Lab assay of single mutants.
Amino acid sequence: IEEVKKIVSEIQSKQLTRITINGNTYQVNSPEELVEYVRKVFS
């Protein structure tokens, strides 16, 4: 979970619009959307 928080804060600070998780690239339009992807991947 700490690793996830680190990734999320990194993305928020860079305002990235794409994230790659487990080889899948997602278009991310908002931090909320990012959190949803993270929940799916780590749930």
Rank of each mutant, 00 (worst) to 15 (best):
V28W: 09
V35Y: 06
G23C: 09
V8I: 15
N22D: 08
K14H: 08
K6W: 12
K5F: 12
N29K: 08
S43A: 13
V41W: 12
R39W: 13
Y26R: 02
Q12T: 09
E2R: 07
G23N: 06
S43D: 12
Y26N: 00
V4L: 15
E36L: 04
V38T: 01
Q15D: 04
I7S: 01
G23T: 01
N22F: 11
V41N: 06
I11R: 02
V8Q: 03
K6I: 08
E36Q: 06
P31H: 05
S43E: 14
E3N: 11
K6P: 02
I21G: 00
V35M: 09
N29D: 12
S9N: 11
T20R: 05
V41T: 06
Q15I: 05
E33H: 03
R39G: 04
S13V: 09
E2N: 09
N24T: 14
Q15R: 13
E2H: 08
T20L: 05
R39H: 10
V8F: 07
P31T: 08
S30H: 06
I19H: 00
Q15P: 02
V4F: 15
S13I: 12
V41I: 15
Y26A: 04
I19A: 01
S9V: 10
R18K: 12
V28F: 15
V28M: 15
R18T: 11
E10S: 06
Y26M: 09
V41G: 03
Q12D: 03
T17V: 08
K6C: 12
E10R: 15
R39Q: 11
Y26T: 04
E32W: 07
E10C: 14
E3G: 07
Q27L: 07
T25K: 04
E10A: 08
G23S: 03
Q27F: 08
N22P: 00
N29T: 09
K6G: 05
R39N: 11
K6S: 09
V28N: 11
I21P: 00
P31R: 01
V38D: 01
F42C: 15
T20P: 00
V38S: 00
I1G: 11
K14P: 03
Q27H: 07
V4A: 09
Q15H: 10
S30L: 06
Q15C: 11
T25H: 11
T25M: 12
K14N: 08
T17I: 11
I19E: 00
K5I: 13
E33W: 08
K5L: 14
N29I: 05
K14V: 04
L16W: 05
S9G: 09
S13A: 12
Q15G: 13
F42G: 02
S9Q: 14
K5S: 13
Q15V: 04
E2L: 09
K14F: 03
V4E: 08
L34C: 06
V38A: 01
R39M: 14
K6R: 14
S9E: 13
T20A: 05
Q15L: 09
I21Q: 00
K14W: 08
T25W: 08
Q12H: 11
K5T: 12
K14C: 13
I19P: 02
Y37V: 15
E3M: 13
S13T: 11
V8N: 00
T17K: 05
L34F: 01
Q27W: 08
E2G: 08
N29C: 13
L16G: 09
E10L: 13
G23E: 04
S13P: 01
V38K: 00
V28Y: 14
I1L: 12
F42H: 04
F42L: 12
V35P: 02
S9W: 13
K5G: 11
K40D: 10
F42R: 02
S43Q: 13
Q12V: 14
K40R: 10
V8E: 04
I11N: 01
F42S: 03
I7F: 06
S30M: 04
I1N: 12
I1D: 13
I19G: 01
E32A: 12
E33F: 04
E32T: 06
I1R: 10
K6Q: 09
E36M: 05
I7P: 01
V35N: 01
V35S: 04
T17N: 04
I19S: 00
P31D: 02
T25Q: 06
V28I: 06
V28A: 15
V4W: 14
Y37S: 05
V4T: 04
R18M: 11
R18V: 12
I7M: 08
S9F: 14
L16H: 03
F42Y: 11
L34N: 00
V35K: 04
L34A: 00
Q27Y: 08
E2I: 14
I19Q: 00
F42I: 07
E33Y: 02
T20C: 12
N24Q: 13
S9T: 11
K40T: 08
E32H: 05
Q27E: 13
I7N: 02
L34V: 02
E36A: 07
I11A: 02
E36I: 04
I21M: 03
N24W: 11
T17G: 02
V4Q: 07
P31E: 01
K6H: 10
I19L: 06
I21A: 00
E3K: 11
E36P: 00
V35D: 02
E10H: 07
K14L: 10
N22V: 02
N22M: 10
V41D: 03
E2Y: 06
T20I: 08
E33L: 12
E33K: 04
Y37K: 11
I1W: 14
F42K: 02
N24L: 15
E3H: 12
Q27I: 12
E33M: 07
S30I: 06
N22K: 07
R39S: 08
V41P: 00
N29Y: 10
T25Y: 08
V8M: 09
E32R: 05
E3Q: 13
S9H: 13
Q12G: 04
I11W: 02
E33S: 02
V41R: 04
K14S: 08
V38N: 00
Y26H: 09
S13C: 10
Q27G: 03
V4N: 03
L34P: 00
L16K: 05
I21T: 01
T20Y: 06
Y37Q: 10
L34D: 00
L16V: 05
V8S: 01
V41Y: 13
T20M: 08
E33A: 07
R18Y: 06
V28G: 15
S13Y: 09
S30P: 10
E32L: 06
K6A: 10
I11H: 01
Q12C: 14
E2T: 08
K5C: 15
Q15M: 08
N22I: 04
K40P: 03
F42M: 11
P31Y: 10
S43F: 13
T25L: 10
I11D: 01
L34W: 04
Y37M: 15
I11S: 01
I11K: 01
Q15T: 03
P31K: 02
N24G: 04
K40Y: 12
S30A: 05
L34I: 01
R18F: 07
E36R: 10
F42A: 04
R39L: 15
I7A: 05
I1Q: 12
T20E: 07
T17Q: 03
S9A: 14
E3A: 12
F42W: 05
I7H: 04
E36Y: 05
I11M: 02
T20N: 06
Y26E: 01
T25E: 08
K40V: 06
Y37R: 11
N24K: 13
K6Y: 08
G23H: 04
Y37H: 10
S13E: 13
K5E: 15
N29H: 08
E32S: 07
N24I: 15
E33Q: 05
Y37I: 15
N24V: 15
R39E: 13
V35G: 02
T17Y: 05
Y37F: 14
E3T: 12
R18E: 10
I19R: 00
I21S: 00
K5N: 14
R18I: 08
E36T: 03
L16M: 07
Q15E: 06
Y37E: 09
I1S: 13
N22Q: 07
V38G: 01
K40N: 10
V28D: 12
T25D: 07
T20H: 05
R18S: 11
S9Y: 13
L34R: 00
R39Y: 14
S13R: 12
K40E: 11
I21L: 09
Y26Q: 02
V28L: 14
L34Y: 01
K5A: 14
Q12M: 15
E3C: 15
K40A: 10
T17F: 09
P31S: 08
E10M: 13
T25C: 15
G23Q: 03
E32V: 04
I21D: 00
N29M: 10
V38W: 04
I21H: 02
E36D: 12
T20S: 06
V28C: 15
K5Y: 12
Y37D: 01
Y37C: 15
I7E: 02
K5H: 13
K14Q: 09
K6D: 07
N22L: 09
R39T: 12
V41C: 15
S13W: 07
I1P: 10
S13D: 11
L16P: 02
Q27P: 01
T17W: 05
P31L: 07
E10D: 09
E32D: 10
E10P: 02
L16Y: 03
I21Y: 03
I1V: 10
